[in-house]
């Protein structure tokens, strides 16, 4: 029974991926990709990766989907020109040939994987007690391979600097994205008032649960960032000025605290990013707590994009989220006929 479910999920995934890649319309492709992301979370559940499933749903499907949807509304007019540059039949045939051969070679590799499979699970289990956390993935992320996690926060900050650096000079120090006007009777305003308290509780719960159960700072940060975006889109609060001091402090606090704890480890435990005996869990909690604001801010700001207006631009009258954000509403004629 479960095998059949897996097979159906796999086939559906392949069909969606193919559909997304070959679809003519960019909006359709992106919509397909969002659904694909949701389905992918299901795959992760079947692959015993609840943590990965949560991350995939939050970041891979959710935030990436939001980014792409936001972009697709703003590139009408470039699509037709791009389509005219489509490669010829010969190129496509070549592409099919090469893609199929890469996939085939990979499949052959998969079928000849060594038995018994190599694994680090026993080693991880053996050393997990020293980290004081119950969730082995958190243990790997914050003890055995803490450097990767530190670098990951640095990656996000660098990506943010890169995105900001794309701003036109006159808007430097300004705010990203359009200014959303508030519509006091709108449903979005209602949602932005009702949902954030619940979202914050759920986010913090996921954060707290991450030490011993699936969940953790990324999933939590995504939910908190989404709540912030919701409040912004409803026009209840504006996107921050990118030169504001508190914002910059919030962005750097995570990695800086992480490095500081690492140095403390070098001093107290004899190894950079190491933890003194018995102090592993509290120090991991400190790192995660410091990373949380960084991740919330950076994820939301990456979604916001480059600064696009000066700091004191007035809200456009009557503009609400959907009209400003995606000029491409749901296709009225539908795409499924």
């Amino acid at each position: 029974m479960t095998a059949i479910v897996s097979l159906v999920v796999a086939l559906l995934l392949l069909w969606l991926a193919l559909w997304t890649v070959v679809a003519r319309d960019a909006f359709v492709a992106v919509a397909g990709f969002v659904v694909y992301g949701l389905l992918l979370s299901l795959v992760w559940v079947r692959l015993a990766g609840i943590d990965v499933a949560l991350t995939e749903a939050a970041i891979g499907g959710g935030l990436t989907g939001a980014l792409l949807l936001g972009a697709v509304g703003r590139l009408r007019g470039t699509e037709a020109a791009a389509w005219s540059e489509r490669s010829g039949a010969c190129t496509r045939a070549f592409a099919v040939l090469l893609s199929v051969s890469v996939a085939t070679v990979l499949a052959l590799c998969v079928l000849t994987l060594p038995e018994p499979p190599p694994t680090l699970a026993p080693q991880a289990a053996e050393n997990l007690a020293a980290t004081g956390v119950g969730n082995p993935i958190t243990g790997v992320l914050l003890a055995f391979r803490a450097l990767d996690t530190l670098l990951e926060a640095v990656v996000l900050v660098i990506a943010l600097i890169g995105v900001w650096s794309l701003a036109p000079d006159r808007f430097w120090g300004g705010r990203p994205g359009p200014r959303y006007g508030a519509d006091p009777d709108g449903i979005l305003t209602y949602l932005a008032r009702v949902l954030p308290p619940i979202g914050i509780v759920v986010g913090l719960y996921l954060f707290w649960a991450g030490a011993d159960h699936p969940g953790g700072k990324f999933q939590s940060a995504t939910i908190l960032a989404a709540m912030w975006m919701l409040v912004q889109m409803a026009g209840l609060s504006d996107a921050p000025r990118i030169d504001s001091r508190w914002l910059r402090a919030g962005i750097v606090v995570g990695p800086l605290v992480f490095v500081a704890v690492g140095v403390l480890g070098a001093w107290q435990a004899g190894a950079f990013l190491g933890y003194p005996d018995g102090w592993a869990k509290p120090m991991i909690v400190v790192i995660e707590l410091a990373l949380l604001p960084t991740l919330v801010l950076v994820l939301a700001l990456l979604l916001n994009g480059a600064p696009a207006r000066s700091a004191d631009s007035p809200p456009a009258p009557g503009e609400t989220s959907l009209s400003a954000r995606s000029t491409r509403p749901m296709p009225a004629g539908g795409t499924r006929q």
Binding site: I187, L188, Y190, L191, I198, L322, S323, S326, P329, M330
Partner: peptide, 25 residues
């Protein structure tokens, strides 16, 4: 709680979609 959240989001989103379709019309 999941159920309530689904209700809330589907209600809000469908209204947003309807409004945007109307605006375009």
């Amino acid at each position: 709680l999941v159920w309530l959240l689904v209700m809330l989001s589907s209600g809000a989103v469908s209204q947003l979609i309807a409004r945007s379709v109307r605006r375009r019309e």
